[in-house]
């Protein structure tokens, strides 16, 4: 119903392509900057130990039936007794990650560095795009879309009469921001392509609490029923040997 808009080729040459190129260049630049700022953090002995305890307790839980009952009981007591068991976390000592973050300036510093390398270039480019390219209809996608996509594709243009398949310059910026991951992984190597969406996920997953996994492991160990599997093996061995002799 709406008649086609004719886009000036100058828009393509001076808005669409420069915007994409700049986004790519900024992505690469940011990769190198964050590589420079990355500090190799040395893990804390306590955290390493907790991880190892969890692994060992999990092994015990999985293969408990392979060791004699006496050995199992002594191990369980060693892990989960209330005084000094390995898995027992004294109340109050289980600090939440937020408090831990504040007590450890290094961690906060790390987060800040990550944030700096992410937020500052983003704000700057957004301001830049807003200043120079606001209000352009920069491109047209070759298929029709429903009205719901208007806010996604025509950010910055408040005209309801324009067909939704036209993309505004600001939306083109957003599309580039989130859509260039494949290109980065091509340029920078597979594992180096950390785009913003992924980083945000990492941030939200930050608050993992090791003491919680210790407690969970302790609980599941406490309710475990030990049933020695070895007596069965004697019969199985007999069967194996019978087969072998035949």
């Amino acid at each position: 119903m709406a008649e086609d808009l004719v886009l000036d080729t100058a828009i393509r040459d001076w808005v669409l392509i420069p915007l994409s190129v700049v986004m790519v260049l900024i992505g690469i630049l940011r990769y190198f900057v964050s590589k420079l700022m990355r500090s190799s953090q040395t893990p804390d002995a306590k955290i390493v130990k907790e991880g190892q305890i969890v692994v060992r307790a999990r092994n015990l839980r999985a293969a408990a039936n392979f060791i004699p009952a006496k050995s199992f009981r002594s191990r369980r007591a060693y892990y989960s007794n209330e005084e000094n068991g390995l898995l027992h976390v004294p109340k109050g000592q289980a600090q939440n990650p937020q408090a831990q973050m504040f007590s450890d300036p290094n961690m906060a510093m790390d987060m800040m560095k990550k944030n700096l390398s992410m937020i500052i270039p983003q704000t700057l480019t957004f301001a830049w795009v807003n200043f120079f390219f606001s209000g352009f209809v920069a491109a047209k996608i070759p298929f029709p879309l429903t009205q719901r996509f208007r806010s996604m594709l025509q950010n910055g243009i408040d005209l309801s009469s324009v067909d939704v398949s036209y993309v505004s310059s600001r939306s083109w910026y957003f599309l580039n921001l989130f859509g260039l991951r494949g290109l980065f992984s091509l340029i920078l190597g597979e594992e180096n392509a950390t785009d913003d969406t992924q980083r945000m996920m990492q941030m939200s997953g930050f608050g993992m609490d090791p003491s919680k996994s210790l407690g969970a492991e302790k609980d599941s160990l406490d309710i475990l029923q030990h049933e020695w599997a070895l007596p069965k093996f004697e019969q199985r061995a007999e069967a194996v040997l019978r087969k072998l002799i035949k």
Binding site: L230, F233, R236, A237, L241, L244
Partner: peptide
């Protein structure tokens, strides 16, 4: 030993 026999197939 029986378990070993079982695991190694005798």
């Amino acid at each position: 030993y029986a378990a070993t026999i079982d695991l190694t197939g005798g």
